[in-house]
Design a protein around this nucleic acid. Structure first.
Lengths: 190, 190
DNA sequence: GATGTTTTTTACCATTTGGTAAATGGGTAC
DNA sequence: GTACCCATTTACCAAATGGTAAAAAACATC
């Protein structure tokens, strides 16, 4: 819970009384690897803060294959923004890529808080905008690279993710099969 | 100019007096294909509204190759958000993918307008947030597809762009060489 | 209309990647 | 420990893609 407060305060100071109000609406829960926080097609009614672990944003292809769109790590917020704000069905699932601990904040509670805490709306907007910018930069960084360089870049940027989540998740994030990723790893070790 | 006003009003009504204030700071200019509105490494000091034509957000690789990150069409705003808001060097260039007509709004003028028009800040935030969401959706839609399907999807989504910008720009957007794109087109016509 | 420039297509072959399937390895439950 | 399950690696071959270069087409200029 303290980590979440620090995260919020990196955007805007949160006095004790506001924090009391806010924290009363939070629920902390452990999630097992593979557990689904939001299922594709459902409407996102909660915003998450990741205390520990890694989540992944997943899209299922028509062929029934799961593609990892993004990884989300501890000390970041995770929310399927368009579903959450416009209340439309989510095009993605939000799953735990490894065992994790998350804080959930329900949208209805957040809306009530907006009435009481005037700066909260723009604080949340800043969080989501930063999240979107990070996603775009992440994706852009891989454009124009071949599979080997994409993996090398991922290794540099997210060495801990490589160690903590299944390789198949990483392969789908990099846009290759897990066999190709395995082969790339073998060649790099040479 | 009217198109820009309509665009703004799709987010929030803009009374005549506010529009007068705002439009006094706008400059409309034609841009030739290939012209650079913002060069990689510079700080974005203007926000653009595209009246006509197509811009592209470009990143130069270490090998000196230009990669198209996104296309931006008429009736959309174009701004390199992190450079514009944080005043840091842009990682991308903004160029005209074909002859175009754009409206420029300088940041210093916008900041002054924020003082006079209270809802303008959140209006601009909404515009940029929508822009980011569109970029992410665009990119996500191509994940997990092979080159042929990526091109087919692009054809469906943006038939006019295919007709109006050089194929090499589209190939770099799709993550393939222009030779591969040409071959894919040939196979599809069969 | 002829010339030169740029864009697009085509062809060739080397390399990379995908698909299928089997072997290996690591972990868990009993 | 043994059996089982799942993740990862490996192997094989087919298919897709990249690199280089040249030809064809489109476009602009004079």
């Amino acid at each position: 819970m303290e980590a979440f407060r620090h995260f919020l305060e990196s955007f805007h100071p949160v006095p004790a009384e506001d924090w009391q109000l806010l924290s009363a609406g939070l629920s902390v829960s452990p999630v097992k690897e593979g557990a689904v926080l939001l299922r594709e097609g459902k409407i996102a009614r909660e915003l998450y803060f990741i205390c520990d672990g890694i989540l992944r944003l997943v899209k299922r292809t028509p062929e029934g294959e799961d593609i990892t769109m993004f990884f989300l790590k501890e000390n970041k917020c995770a929310v399927v923004l368009d579903s959450f704000s416009q209340e439309i069905p989510s095009q993605y699932s939000l799953e735990a890529a490894c065992d994790a601990m998350v804080i959930a904040l329900r949208k209805d509670y957040l809306l009530r808080l907006y009435e009481e805490i005037p700066y909260l709306r723009s604080l949340v907007d800043s969080i989501t905008q930063q999240g979107l910018l990070e996603k775009i930069h992440t994706r852009n960084a891989y454009m124009g690279l071949d599979a080997t360089r994409r993996y090398q870049h991922f290794l540099e940027q997210e060495p801990d993710i490589v160690a903590r989540v299944p390789l198949s998740d990483i392969a789908s994030f990099l846009g290759i099969t897990q066999q190709s990723l395995s082969r790339i790893r073998k060649n790099l070790h040479t």
